[in-house]
Simulated assay, not measured.
Amino acid sequence: MSSLNTPISDVLLDWFDQHGRHDLPWQQDKSPYPVWVSEIMLQQTQVSTVIPYYQRFIDTFPTVEALANAPIDQVLHLWTGLGYYARARNLHKTAQLIVEQYQGIFPASLDALQALPGIGRSTAGAILSITQNQPTAILDGNVKRVLARYHAIQEWTGDTQVQKHLWQLAEFHTPKQRTGDYTQAIMDLGATLCRRSKPSCLICPLQPNCQAWLQGLTDTLPRPRPRKTLPERTVTLALLQNNQGEIWLQQRPPSGIWGGLWSLPEIDDPIAFDLSAQQPTETLPPLKHTFSHFQLQITVERYRLPNDLHCVMDTAEGLWYNVDQPQQAVGLAAPIKKLLQQFSQHRSSSR
């Protein structure tokens, strides 16, 4: 039995051997490439959501070289719906750097891994501990929750000083042996027992010394981010149809929201011709999408293009997209994909 002055690793490893998850897709091959892909996908995303995306991604890009040589549109297409698309863009950039600078072999040092796009300290630690058993600590959301409860940390875990303290605790508890299994164990504990809501404290191996349990604080720790009202932004998008019923899509800039993804053009942006002489055939019901830092209110105006404007659009930067039978594998922003699906269903039902 551990105490607060004793690392929790032995207790957790005993629990993991008996009750941990050992059959997740990315646990079958503990080489750096699949572990890296899974760790990036698992950032801020639940295991159940990640599994089908991971399997499709690895089937399509079985090696880091295959990913590096793929067009970014194909990468973003496979990522559509997973959110936080900067992860996909960084995954693609990092694959190219590993092929160009490291001959396809992942660097084996924490500093070198952290220098690559999209790989922070925790992700680098997970890759090295799981693939090479290096004693490198991790501090993802699950681990923060476990440590915050076990040590009854009263402050918000996103605070800079609290993060520093949590890293010290993470390093203290990380063992020198079986580090990869310990990394899996503490992530498993946070995902399956020490959940954000309704934790299963009665069967948790850490319960006897968990300060949140002993002080009756499991429902209030870790402390949530101090609440603040999210600012709202508005945007009006143009749903432009040609005579075949195809929708005009434009690729967004590589940075900013939905960077590199395909979307409906914004009314305020140049879209190869002036819409001022055109009247929308309808305005679709508004759609609200919440980002981490703001809420976006989306209004969509539908336009049916006359033949002469259709010709102009053919020469512009973009593509015609068949909603019912897509021919192109393009990355769509999740709300745009949802909107196009709803439009397709509405059009089908009204025929």
Rank of each mutant, 00 (worst) to 15 (best):
L76S: 03
E100Y: 01
S349Y: 05
Y33N: 09
L147F: 12
V75W: 12
S197G: 04
I267A: 12
Y53S: 04
R252Q: 10
Q177R: 08
R56N: 14
R87C: 11
F294L: 15
D324W: 05
V37R: 06
T315R: 11
I58Y: 01
F291H: 15
G216K: 05
L332P: 03
D10Y: 04
Q161W: 08
D314Q: 14
R304G: 11
C201A: 14
F61G: 04
F273N: 13
E266C: 12
S197A: 06
I105S: 01
K288F: 03
D274G: 10
L193T: 05
L249A: 11
V47M: 09
C201F: 12
S31G: 05
G245F: 06
E232I: 14
A277P: 05
S2P: 09
I138M: 03
K164C: 04
C194E: 12
I298R: 03
I186H: 01
Q279P: 08
G104N: 01
T220A: 13
W262Y: 15
G245I: 06
S348T: 14
R347D: 13
D29K: 11
E301R: 00
G83L: 01
Q327C: 02
H289F: 13
N322Q: 15
I271R: 10
M313W: 12
L24C: 09
N90L: 01
W79C: 15
A115E: 04
M41V: 03
G259D: 12
Y150S: 03
D324V: 12
Y303M: 10
T6H: 08
Y84W: 06
K144E: 14
Q132Y: 11
L332F: 06
N243R: 05
L239K: 11
V235N: 02
P7V: 10
D29P: 07
G118S: 11
T234L: 01
S350D: 12
T236E: 03
A70W: 05
F57V: 04
L206S: 11
L67I: 07
A68G: 05
L284A: 15
I127Y: 11
Q44T: 10
S255A: 06
S129V: 04
N142S: 10
F273V: 13
L13K: 12
P208L: 01
P32G: 06
H173W: 03
E155D: 13
T183A: 15
D10V: 02
G104P: 10
M187P: 01
H22N: 04
L305D: 00
Q251R: 14
P32Q: 09
C194W: 09
T290N: 07
S344V: 00
T236F: 07
D181F: 08
H293L: 14
L237F: 08
F106A: 07
E100G: 00
P7I: 09
P71H: 00
A86N: 12
R149Y: 08
L249G: 10
Q161N: 05
T220C: 10
M41Q: 15
A68H: 06
Q103L: 04
E246W: 00
A212W: 02
A148I: 06
C311Q: 14
A170H: 06
L275G: 11
T45I: 00
V300K: 04
S348G: 03
S197F: 10
S263K: 05
Q96R: 13
K30P: 05
L305P: 00
N5G: 09
Q325I: 07
